[in-house]
Amino acid sequence: MGKLHRDFYNRDALTVGKELLGKVLVHEADGITLAAKIVETEAYSGFEDKAAHFYGGKRTPRVEVIYGEPGFSYVYFIYGMYNCFNVVAGGKNDPQAVLIRALEPLEGLQQMALNRFSKPYGELVKREIIGLTNGPGKLCKAFGIDKSFYGEDLCESRLYLEDGEQDAAFQIVTAKRVGIDYAEEAKDFPWRFYIKDNRYVSVK
């Protein structure tokens, strides 16, 4: 499986959001490889998107990476508890991003369980197994992604994305984004994408 190149990210967030499904997020750290299939994403695109942190052209140190080159990570902290990992899409000065909402674990499950629940994978109950990575905050904790990953070059670093199984076929479901009731008309944009019937999807 090959690492995704810059050109993959240099497109609109809706296209990237759909095509990230089935791709694999990889984190290599301390000799351990964590890998999981992306099964749910949300797109945030343009100055008119009232759900986006860059709505109306807002440009602060927090969102500066989104105005840069595509293929970098945008990590932010919410509710004083959770990190959220986003992939920067679009081109320079064309702010667009894709939130990774859920993953299906593939490799490094033991370390994910220790990161997430502080106990071995073999001791997890079914609810905890699903709960490893079935939400944006959960997957960041399982993968050890925190604010130190802000601005990470996903084409050149310890954290990257690669192609999934080439023959894997699945149906994509399009739905409203989650947790953005404040965003007026943007809360109804059908910009969330997930793999149909995947048990790790956060919200069906």
Rank of each mutant, 00 (worst) to 15 (best):
A186F: 02
K204C: 07
A29C: 08
F149R: 02
K138D: 03
T33I: 15
G91I: 00
E40I: 11
A113D: 03
S148Q: 14
Q110M: 08
K147F: 12
A102K: 03
V63M: 09
D167K: 13
F85Q: 00
P190Y: 11
E156M: 14
M112H: 05
G91L: 05
E165V: 13
I38V: 13
A183L: 08
I66N: 00
M81K: 13
D7Y: 05
R199N: 06
R199C: 08
D153N: 15
T15P: 02
K141A: 04
R116S: 03
P120H: 10
L154Q: 01
R192L: 12
E162P: 05
Y200E: 03
N134A: 10
G131S: 14
L124Y: 10
D12R: 10
Q96H: 14
K204Q: 14
A35P: 12
M112W: 08
K58M: 06
R127V: 14
S148Y: 13
D153M: 12
A97R: 02
L20I: 12
A186Y: 02
F143M: 09
K204M: 13
Q111P: 05
F117K: 14
I66V: 15
D12E: 06
R127K: 15
F54R: 00
K176D: 06
Y9L: 09
K196P: 12
G122Y: 08
Y67Q: 06
N10W: 04
Y67V: 06
N198H: 06
V39Y: 02
S73A: 15
V39S: 04
L103P: 00
V24I: 15
D146G: 09
F8S: 00
P70F: 01
A36R: 00
A52T: 04
E165M: 14
T15C: 06
P70T: 03
K147H: 13
E152F: 10
